[in-house]
Nucleic acid binder design. Structure first.
Length: 674
RNA sequence: UGGCCCAUGGUGUAACUGGCAACACGUUGGUUUUUGGUACCAAAGAGUCUAGGUUCGAGCCCUAGUGGGCCAACCA
């Protein structure tokens, strides 16, 4: 890795620093350690992106480790799904490993802990233990079994392993300090009895290690150098280190846990438990429902690995709580699809258009460019005839000059075809438009190069030939939740914010080339958005998912669309700030400026000072001593005011005195001017 | 009546050993355009939570406060 133009995030700074002081690059190793108890979601892509991204950056191996220490919640299905998702994102792990691979080693180490007098078997109820544990503000107390002999502990622990006891009868705890300020250090549990079959080890074990006892030791066994996790594990770090202290030997890499803020996305939830509830309650149709924030959901929705990786890269890494606006995710997928998706024509809300002067029995196959952003994409043929579908939205009987689409008496172009002119409408008895009659100019065919074809018209419409059109189902998705932060309301459940109209089924008409479309293929329906072929789709029954709409600056013109709620009013363009405020702002950076620029700022201040009243200035006499720049600006302003005839008073004199006595030469200079 | 972490435009992230607060999204205007898309140009928007301190100079260092988050599962 040579010089980077991009700045480093705080984790990269830590690693760069470690590289300088304590570890060589070939010892760098990372891991991504999901628990296989659910599907991966967009939040996980951040963790994945950090660890695998570091692996790519430093050419270091990254393990995919399944943290499977709780057989009650974990399943093979999730293991498979996680592997598929990580691969799909384009990351390559070094080893596929499981915490359960280390059960024997973990057990042996626990025995050692007992022998060292650092672990004991506790035989109380969980309630009793919770009682003794204290609270964050009150220390805990020692329990009655804390001082069992090594022999007794060993015997009990072995019998726990042998299956002699029921769940809950005994547990093994580390013997640390029940009075510790960190509650995790108050004799944490390291083994519990769980008479459950494990998805990998079956019934070999009936005692299972806890997270804290497993994680750092697994990192150590794999020689992970930097163990990155989210912020809520910060308090665990002390315990992580304590456990490591018990077994680390020299010349082995000692893993470091470091924590970053997890990703939150507006208008969605990120908790596996809650996501599971959406699946189980039938709110969505499975973990890969295109409305889900899961990786598999995004994949089915039409997102690309490129877009997701770009997104993760863009949101950055820090320790500050954050909520990323979905618009950034949408930007990332549009950016990718704009470059790669072939353009086609589809009409989602059809109205019939008849070209009255076009021969009834004529068909034409017109040339259409597949993707103007990609020269290699080539061309295809689309059929044209007398009767077409266009979007209902694209016609108005009359409209103002801001409407660029079809109206009576005005011309628009049909994409890849002719220029037409609105002539008349046919309505049913309720006044609904059933047909639009137009005439076309035969000399205006796209690409024909004739003078007429080069004529500028304001609008271009997409269309499909009714005779040739293919019916397709389009699934249009809206956000699943109507609240920006559905699971952060104390008084309401996230289920209260479910959007009942998050899925809309549309019968659309698409150009015939789409019968060839394969599952997963992505297209831009021109002027509408990006769509992909769902895996429920067949060539007889085409089904598309709407990935995301095109950016639509026209929609904002229309009054009925609600304003984006999380966008605030642009502040009035020239707020006309008060002179004193501007002076204060100038002052702030005054002392740090190069001479030339400082002179200019000084001149500006002196000019602005003409507009300042004494009442505005006086409060600033109390400016903190450290804000030298502001005090200089105030001094300059004062000079002007005095010159303009302001009477001196005690406050002014005192302020000048203090200026003269200051250590800053610039301030002293301006004070002496008076 | 605790401990730890965090605080920079609307959002997110930068600013290396203190030295003219930058980039992206979003917003607004314009140019181009056979997609009201894309591309391009431009603009507005923060003086860095507050109060003190150190310093010639603080977003960055120190102190105190305020606000937010995390910590009391035989979950991870």
């Amino acid at each position: 890795m040579s010089e980077e133009t991009k700045s480093l995030n705080f984790i990269e700074h830590i690693i760069e620093n470690d590289l300088k002081t304590e570890i060589s690059q070939d010892k760098l190793r990372f891991r991504f350690p999901p628990e296989p108890n659910g599907y991966l979601h967009i939040g996980h892509t951040k963790a994945i992106g950090i660890s695998f991204g570091l692996g790519e950056r430093y050419n270091a191996p990254v393990n995919l480790r399944f943290d499977d220490t709780n057989p009650a919640k974990e399943e093979q299905e999730y293991v498979d799904a996680i592997k598929e998702d990580v691969s799909w994102l384009g990351y390559h792990w070094d080893k596929e490993v499981y915490s359960s691979d280390y059960f024997q080693q973990l057990f042996d180490w626990a025995v050692q802990l007992i022998k060292d007098g650092k672990a004991y078997v506790d035989s109380q109820s969980s309630e009793a233990m919770a009682e003794q544990k204290g609270t964050p503000t009150q220390p805990g107390i020692d329990g009655p079994f804390r001082n069992r002999t090594v022999e007794e502990n060993l015997d009990l622990f072995n019998r726990m392993k042998a299956g002699e006891f029921n769940e809950g009868e005994h547990i093994l705890r580390a013997k640390i300090d029940m009075q510790h300020v960190n509650m995790l250090m108050r004799d944490p549990i390291i083994y519990r009895i769980l008479k459950k079959s494990h998805h990998r080890t079956g019934d070999t074990w009936c005692i299972y290690p806890m997270y804290d006892w497993t994680h750092g030791e697994s990192d150590y066994l794999e020689q992970v150098s930097h163990s990155l996790c989210s912020l809520e594990f910060k308090p665990h770090r002390e315990l992580y280190d304590w456990f490591l202290d018990q077994l680390v030997v020299e010349d082995q890499v000692r893993p470091k846990q470091r924590e970053f803020a997890r990703l939150n996305l507006s208008y969605t939830i990120m908790s596996k438990r809650k996501l599971l509830q959406l699946v189980e309650d039938g709110v969505v149709n499975g973990w890969d429902d295109p409305r889900m924030p899961t990786i598999s959901g995004l994949r089915r929705r039409g997102y690309t690995p490129t877009a997701i990786r770009k997104f993760v890269e863009t949101v950055g890494v820090a320790k500050r709580e954050n909520v990323i606006d979905v618009s950034l995710l949408e930007f990332c997928i549009r950016e990718d699809l704009n470059k790669t998706a072939p353009r086609v024509m589809a009409v989602l809300d059809p109205v019939k258009l008849v070209i009255t002067n076009y021969p009834e029995d004529k068909d034409e196959w017109l040339e259409a460019e597949n993707n103007q952003e990609d020269d290699s994409a080539g061309f295809r043929q689309v059929p044209f005839s007398r009767e077409l579908y266009i979007e209902r939205d694209d016609f108005k009987e009359q409209a103002n000059s801001k409407y660029f689409r079809l109206t009576l008496g005005k011309e628009v172009r049909l994409k890849n075809a002719y220029i037409i002119k609105g002539e008349s409408v046919v309505k049913d008895e309720n006044g609904n438009i059933t047909e639009i009659h137009v005439s076309y100019d035969p000399d205006t065919l796209s690409g024909s190069g004739t003078e007429a074809s080069l004529r500028k018209v304001k609008g271009t419409l997409h269309w499909v030939s009714i005779k040739h059109a293919v019916k397709a189902v389009v699934r249009e998705y809206d956000r699943l939740f109507m609240d920006e932060s559905p699971d952060s309301h104390a008084d309401k459940s996230f289920m209260d914010f479910i959007n009942p109209e998050s899925l809309k089924l549309i019968t659309a008409f698409v150009e015939p080339s789409l019968t060839e479309a394969k599952v997963g293929e992505r297209f831009q329906f021109q002027r509408l958005g990006y769509f992909n072929v769902d895996y429920d789709s067949t060539s007889e029954n085409l089904i598309f998912n709407k990935t995301v709409g095109l950016r639509d600056s026209w929609a904002k013109e229309k009054p009925k669309t609600e304003p984006n709620p999380n966008q605030n009013q642009p502040k009035s363009n020239q707020p006309q700030r008060k002179a004193i405020d501007v002076i204060q702002q100038f002052g702030k950076k005054y002392t740090n400026l190069p001479d030339a620029k400082r002179e200019k700022i000084k001149a500006d201040i002196l000019e602005l000072a003409e507009k300042v009243s004494y009442d505005e200035l006086e409060p600033l006499f109390g400016t903190a001593a450290k804000k030298v720049g502001t005090r200089i600006a105030v001094m300059l302003t004062l000079q002007v005011l005095l010159k303009n005839g302001l009477e001196r008073n005690d406050a002014i004199n005192e302020f000048i005195e203090k200026g003269l006595a200051d250590g800053n030469a610039l301030l002293v200079a301006e004070a002496s001017e008076i």
